[in-house]
Design a protein around this nucleic acid. Structure first.
Lengths: 258, 258
DNA sequence: CACAATCTCTGACTTTAGTCAGAGATTGCC
DNA sequence: GGCAATCTCTGACTAAAGTCAGAGATTGTG
């Protein structure tokens, strides 16, 4: 199993990685291309950009200046908070992005073009499966304080979803309310699942004096449903740490985390 | 389809790429790690190393010097040709390679560890499929002169294989010999399939005056059998260019190759 | 033996991709 | 209004990854 994963890693970094650089990094450095990509047609706050690409503020600033110098982007102060800047693509920037898009398509096509139709189909199916499961495996679950921003986002997403689901809507005030204090030890605990930097699920354990506990606020974001995340959250709530250990007790993460 | 491939590319370069750098580039620059990797336990000619990693000779020279400085490798002139150098790992170099190996294993494990056993199995199966098909799609077929080194390698591999296969062995001298002249236009043509820089298959078309041709010397290396390469070679011999075009006439490579 | 080709190495560069420490403008909060 | 926090920018660095033009040794070939 390990061997197959390693072989996959090697093949994929060589082929896809190399091709990516070749196709996309042709007209400008890959870093700039990535930024263009992330800005998108609709523009974006610099702050958000920095968070999503996980770049140093100074570095990003320079990348943006370089793009601006090439006439591809325009920076304007944001309306509601004049500390943050808003980037958007100029006409030329839009054209550049469209070209990156085309190249990305061309790359995808070139990966299929030499295969027979039946092979193409199998490759695409397998890719989709890998894509899904790799996403699932990248989700991290950790215990956080209910006042933390991710936690609050999850809880309000949970309420919003209930409101959408119930025919008569749902009012958080009328439901069984859980104070933040009840979601943190020793009264209870809150787990949040994150994918990269965005929260995609949560679950709460509420301890009761008699030695039992109840599970509440279990929510999984629509974008990651069907990946077994709900089950994983449940498992974590029932036996903390179970999902971060190797299934058969063999040494997993720990060895590596040094 | 294109969309799925693009999604896969993005997911994979982000996750696998980032993890790779994190795990493997920890103790030394990725470039040096790659070189160590490619040298392997058994050592290697510098010339071969350069070909396999496709590096500038000056750059590789410096990388090797840096590794030598760290006491990981030793350079000795090759016995049969004293222009080329032979690199091998010292004891410390071997240890370093073993550590890279461990990290690579750990990385593979970390990609599986959070998944349920059934998911793990599906992921590994899908990865193996992608691995195979991506390899298949990376094979390039081109017409070469029969005197070229790849061509000669293929032809002698073909004879060697016949010799192994026939109970009584096979002697190239007794078989129907094809002179190089018969494998190049206008008398015939020779196709060679290459994966990266190594030849993995070939096929010859011998024209006859009556307006028909015969196919000879069709061979596929054992390492890439089962990927449909034989069929592809046949197809190319029958209708040149068929496999390098899009199946449904939509614009493929050409758009990009500019 | 002369000469071209091959292989490696050196020196001098460049670009990319970052990191770090502040400065300056703005905002939220007491 | 004062002060801490937030966001962006600038300057000053660094490391990695590569490119290019030869120089020097060695080898095959006519």
């Amino acid at each position: 199993m390990i061997k197959a994963v390693r072989s996959f890693n090697r093949a994929v970094t060589q082929r896809v990685g190399a091709l990516n650089e070749h196709y996309l990094g042709r007209s400008r450095p890959l870093g700039e291309a990535r930024v263009l990509w992330e800005i998108g047609e609709r523009g974006c706050d610099v702050r958000l950009l920095r968070a999503r690409l996980d770049l140093d503020s100074g570095y990003l600033s320079r990348l943006l200046r370089s793009l601006e110098g090439a006439g591809l982007t325009a920076l304007t102060p944001s309306d509601d908070d004049r500390r943050v800047r808003n980037v958007r693509l100029t006409k030329r920037g839009g054209a550049e992005l469209a070209m990156l898009d085309q190249r990305s398509d061309a790359l995808a096509k070139s990966m299929l073009s030499t295969l027979a139709p039946a092979q193409q189909e199998r490759l695409v199916t397998a890719m989709a499966e890998v894509d899904r499961l790799l996403t699932a495996s990248a989700v991290e679950i950790s215990q956080v304080d209910p006042d933390q921003s991710d936690a609050r986002l999850c809880l309000s997403a949970y309420y919003a979803e209930l409101d959408r689901r119930f025919p008569a809507g749902f009012d958080a005030a009328t439901g069984d309310s859980l104070e933040p204090g009840e979601m943190r030890p020793p009264a209870g605990l809150l787990l949040v699942a994150t994918l990269g930097k965005t929260a995609v699920g949560c679950g709460v354990l509420r301890f009761h004096s008699e030695g039992w506990a109840e599970i509440k606020r279990l929510w999984v974001d629509g974008s990651v449903r069907g990946l077994g995340l709900g089950r994983r959250l449940l498992g974590e709530l029932e036996t903390p740490g179970c999902a971060t250990r190797e299934p058969h007790g063999s040494p997993g993460h720990e060895q590596v985390a040094s």
